[in-house]
């Protein structure tokens, strides 16, 4: 476990170097550039957080919180604001203790999200993580829309050494799920990972299709623990909130997978989502290799964003 943690930290550190440099440098310049805590100071702080894709609403909440603290504790030094800010964000980012309960039960994990966020890759990574834990894994390739989606997932299943149920391109994804659920029951599978086609959250019919898939899982496999994860591209701006909201409506998502966090300069959207929807980020993708999917650690994440001692060079 500690090994995993170090690995995560290193990866995150490398992945987030750019983010950290941006945010930390600008925040540092704010903290040191201002002699007093005044409106200009808060305004600049607000700008920096907005630029980090944290979102206006979440930023406002954070600043309000910060102002309250500053007043209560009679803080005069801008530099002291720093640790308060970090703690405030950490507080917002907490993950419940039972967030990963599904890992130890017979479970169905439904993966949803818009196009191109990395759903299929995430499933490939999850499959090999659970396989390595000695679990019996089955994948349902219910993206029957995109050209060669099944082939892509078959390749991942092959790499992870797990079984996969596929359907023909253009066939009803719900029928693939139906078959997979029954196969999972018959084979006594521990984890059934369901891939779905990427869909924009504002396409009503496609969201209805998702609800149908969700209903089939509920109906056919009521004993299984159901986990519904929405995959969000870490580079996405405020639209990620809309996505999370709509997918929450459709499949009652229980967690978020934040992908491509190794390249983007913005990790802020995670804060915005947590603050607005109270849906925790559970996994974070920091690379293309099969091991580059890690459990989300809010403390590490926020520290990596703000802690200067982690800065290289």
């Amino acid at each position: 476990m500690s090994e995993e943690k170090i690995g995560f930290f290193e990866r995150l550190k490398n992945g987030l170097t750019k983010t950290r440099n941006n945010i930390v440098n600008s925040i540092d310049s704010v903290f040191s550039g201002f002699k007093t805590i005044d409106d200009d100071f808060y305004e600049e702080l607000e700008e920096i957080l907005v630029m980090g894709d944290i979102g206006i609403k979440a930023t406002d909440q954070i600043i309000t919180e910060l102002k309250k603290e500053v007043k209560q504790r009679h803080i005069k030094e801008p530099a002291d604001c720093r640790s308060i800010l970090i703690n405030t964000i950490k507080e917002q980012m907490k993950v419940d203790q039972d967030a990963y309960a599904f890992e130890n039960k017979t479970s169905v994990i439904l993966i949803v999200g818009v196009n191109g966020v990395g759903k299929t890759t995430t499933i490939g990574k999850l499959a090999s993580i659970y396989k390595a834990q000695g679990k019996k894994v089955l994948i349902a390739a219910a993206d029957t829309f995109r050209a060669a989606a099944s082939e892509q997932l078959e390749e991942w299943a092959d790499r992870a050494g797990v079984d996969i149920i596929t359907g023909k391109e253009g066939s009803d994804p719900a029928s693939v799920i139906f078959d997979a659920v029954n196969a999972a029951k018959a084979r006594k599978t521990d984890v059934l990972l369901c891939d779905t086609a990427g869909r924009l959250h504002n396409k009503k019919n496609l969201m209805e299709e998702l609800k149908k898939i969700d209903r089939i899982i509920e109906r056919e496999f009521p004993d299984a623990y159901k986990e519904s994860l929405v995959v969000l591209d870490g580079a996405t701006g405020q639209n990620a909130l809309m996505q999370a909201r709509e997918f929450k409506d459709a499949t009652n998502i229980t967690g978020i997978v934040l992908t491509k966090m190794d390249g983007t300069a913005k990790g802020g959207i995670a804060v915005a989502i947590q603050s607005e929807l109270q849906v925790p980020v559970k996994y974070i993708g920091v690379g293309e290799k099969i091991n580059d999917l890690q459990k989300f650690d809010p403390d590490d994440f926020v520290d990596a964003l703000f802690d200067r001692s982690q800065e290289k060079e």
Binding site: M51, G52, D53, V114, A235, T236, N239, I269
Partner: peptide
């Protein structure tokens, strides 16, 4: 470029 990209679009 994905139209949903946030502030990072410019860096990319």
């Amino acid at each position: 470029v994905d139209a949903m990209t946030g502030q990072d679009a410019v860096n990319i």
